[in-house]
Amino acid sequence: MHQIVVDIGEYQVTDDPSAILITYSLGSCIAVVLYDPVVKVGGMLHLMLPDSEINPLRARERPGMFADTGIPLLLESCERLGAEKSRLQVKVAGGGEMLDSSGFFRIGKRNYAAVRRILWQHGLMIRAQDVGGNANRTVSLEMATGKVKVKISGDGIKEL
């Protein structure tokens, strides 16, 4: 088994059954995980922000930073490795937030709203998720089985 680390604002796809995709400490960022159980192709995106309009130049160089540019790329890359959209299992985790009584920043919620909208636009339904709250999450995808695990700091590991 070998580990493929997905950095902030990046995505990785693979068809290697011995691989584990992992992304660390999401904060308000969101991990979008796609997996086709038939061909065992999967991918993971660690997006930071909802909308590439925040910095269109960076979005061209680093599309994985934003939900609207990252998700389509993740999907295409999985399809290129043989995944079929109709078979894709979509799982989403992250989008935690600091305590913010004024609701001034709410970046986790904005990210999650964008992720839902863009997945929907591409005809993808979320099968399982663990989002929001004050949780800081680490997420992994085991390619052999499609198991997605979420570790919440201070709260143990669960399977999505």
Partner: peptide, 24 residues
């Protein structure tokens, strides 16, 4: 706040701290 939002070294505590939006 910016670093914790990105999750950099956010551990089990940083997201359970308050944002002071008045300061922002």
């Amino acid at each position: 706040v910016l670093c914790s939002t990105l999750g950099i070294g956010a551990g089990n505590d940083e997201l359970s701290e308050k944002i002071d939006s008045e300061v922002l």
